[in-house]
Write a protein that binds this DNA or RNA. Structure first.
Lengths: 237, 237
DNA sequence: ATGGCGAGAATTGAATTCAATCACAGCAGG
DNA sequence: CCTGCTGTGATTGAATTCAATTCTCGCCAT
């Protein structure tokens, strides 16, 4: 059973091979967490749905030990809720809880943006312009969700932080499902203020006007928060 | 080996007995995490110090599996840094990183306080007054640290949140060591503005004046942030 | 003396195994 | 017909065991 030490493409995989890729020792938990995170964010798992350890372990070719590690990681991120001796479920939010997360975003994202503004390369600002334009043309909900997320997170990409960036990623992840549900609704209502916000944000970034960018972003998030609060039916399911 | 189902004080402990207390199944990781957290916050572990899994497991009468769970929990809180295959260390902060955390506190704690103000029972406000007074009289660094933490966290105690409260606890925990180091210094400098802030905060709470309370608190945290930034030597060790 | 190298020890990562708890179906009784 | 209880199966929690990696310390060459 002695496996060779990671030869390039020959011989057997040293530990576990998933999708044909060689994987290092000591990252199984993080890898499973990343995969499960994507599944939850992509909608493969619904909020409230139960997560079984054995099922995950079997699907990833691992034992339940790293699966439990992965669940702990996602619990800390707020994506999963664990009850001792009972099980794990995909976390769900009430309307009030979602409002709280949006208030956090409203106060934190302008700060992260301010860290990013000065260091943002001009090429990135052009990509942001392209994303804002693409969103206005987009007709598909899933595509819009993806573009919107890319747009905002890209605008923060020049910020080097130890906690602020992670906190905001978590906020985006925890609210992802409800943002998707809302987007389906907002497209029916033909509200274009979202696009105007994005365009204004790009202008502020071009001018390297940190104050203006912060204000536009705070108003953008606030508007979304209030729109969500007007549609509590999203949270019933 | 069939153990009776949790008889009161007779027979052998069902699983593991620590400090003579009976403990439920499925909480070992959380319990070890809580104990280690207190040790780190209390100063028993210094930033940068290595944490060995076996040592912890032995001390808590458990195997390394729940210890690893505990380390994952504390890593998510930012108190511990884990490197795969290498080990775990108590996290340390640079001056710049600490400033970032204080900027987070500056934006978030007023929000949490606003959640709390209206629901804070009058008795709690009296306790806050007592804590503010006790801090002014306090001569001991450790006692001041403890009173200050109790004061602020108590002022938030009426807020019911799912993420904001946890985030702020983490901010307090991650900066605890440096706050202690600073306090030793500030006492030499005889700066009483901290106490004036506390007294003003209690007044605002008495008046149920949310806006005033938020402003006082933001200024309080900002002043501490700037004071810390003036003493980068704290972060050299 | 100092820096690179290698063998052994120490430490961490993950699979397996066993124990404890919980969920749920079926049944007795009101 | 509904309510509450009980036993069985499923699921999770933790100890043990084994494998992989890294750290440490002594050795040697420069």
């Amino acid at each position: 059973m002695a496996s060779s030490t990671a030869g390039a493409l020959s011989g057997a995989a040293p530990l576990t091979a998933v999708n044909g890729a060689f994987l290092p020792h000591g990252e199984a938990g993080a890898r499973i967490a990343a995969a499960l995170r994507e599944e939850i964010l992509g909608g493969a798992y619904q909020p409230g749905e139960r997560i079984r350890q054995q099922e995950l372990a079997g699907r990833h070719g691992a034992s339940r030990v790293p699966v439990r590690e992965a669940l702990r990681i996602l619990e800390a991120e707020g994506l999963v809720t664990i009850v001792a001796n009972a099980g794990s479920w995909v976390s769900r939010l009430s309307a009030q809880e979602c409002t709280e997360l949006y208030q956090l975003r409203e106060r934190l994202e302008p700060l992260l943006l301010s860290y990013s503004v000065a260091a943002l390369p001009a090429g990135v600002i052009e990509r942001l312009q392209g994303l804002a334009d693409a969103m206005q043309r987009s007709a598909d909900v899933e595509e819009f969700i993806r573009l919107d997320r890319t747009f905002h997170l890209l605008s923060y990409s020049a910020a080097a932080t130890i906690m602020l960036g992670d906190t905001i990623s978590r906020l985006w992840n925890r609210t992802q499902h409800y943002r998707r549900a809302y987007t389906r609704m907002f497209r029916a209502e033909r509200d274009d203020s979202v696009h105007y916000d994005h365009q204004l944000l790009v202008v502020a970034l071009r001018n390297r006007d940190t104050d203006d960018a912060e204000r536009v972003l705070a108003a953008h998030i606030r508007r979304t928060r209030l729109a969500l609060a007007r549609h509590p039916e999203i949270f019933d399911a």
